[in-house]
Amino acid sequence: MTTETHIDIAELRKKQPRFNAIDSGHRACLGCGQALGARLVGEAVGPDIIVANATGCLEIFTTPWPESAWRVPWMHSLFENAGAIASGIEAAMRAQGKSTKVVAMGGDGSTFDIGFQALSGMLEREHNVLYVCYDNEAYMNTGVQRSSSTPHAAMTNTSPPGKARMGKRHLKKDIVQIIAAHHTPYAATASVAYPSDLRKKIRRAMEIEGPTFIQIHAPCPLGWGHEGHESIEVERLAVQTGLFPLVELERGELTGVMPIRQQVPVTEYLKRQQRFRHLFAKGDSRAAEELEHIQALADHNIEVYGLRGEGVDRFDTEGSDTVHRGGQRWA
């Protein structure tokens, strides 16, 4: 005898323990840090949101018509106006008396560079918007070109190394400080290698009435030149070296950092990625100089933000995201 089973997907979804704004089945590359970042953000924001997404990898890989990976209302307009689109949606929510939170999302290109003005305006006008920047340190969607977030000395297709150059000549823009200088209630950095910390920061930002900003460092296997399965390892090193400090700033004041338990030399991070390959060329004196330079940048971050931990801290770069007794992991 056979019994008929009927599976109601919509009902099942309702029973899922954690709502996620973004579904599987999108078309990101294997090991894409941005896809992981969006998933983690999607877990923390809840269903009552509207997303304004700038042009870039996330937008492209989640919405190839007639499919969409989004389970929340989502809008893409242009590369450089996510801050203004979000402002408009938020103004509409205000006009309609709704409490739906607006979440803007963009890559480093749309955030640091071309969409910076619209973002700055959004912050200055104090729209109630959480702006999330997925920082993969280059224009990936157009095939890996430099942005103002690309780190010093990194190779991209518009900052190639050669006889006269050692990759990008300029420094990575310190965007979180610039955002904080807008008197922003809450601006923080996060990393996809530290998901609990990331989610905690998103939840904190969601609770604040006013503009908030979270810069999520997100490895890109294609642009950084590492295998997809190495993304998390590489990304952890970005934090553990001090090159990407995890900090929280409230109205410009530093209010939190993730301490580094054991500082790792920058070479450990750099050598894992093809974009820094030229820094390990044998017999090139410029390479040694650049490595020193980058180590100095990491040391400077550690100094400025006071990242050197004092012994063991359960939420430092080693302790965070290990499972703690009592369910603290989801703190």
Binding site: L78, A84, S87, G88, I89, A91, Q117, A118, E124
Partner: peptide, 17 residues
């Protein structure tokens, strides 16, 4: 807003909402 580019974008976002 801080530019016409944003003016057009704000009304676009608002009407879409």
């Amino acid at each position: 807003v801080e530019s016409e580019f944003s003016a057009a974008s704000v009304v676009l976002g608002a009407a879409a909402a």
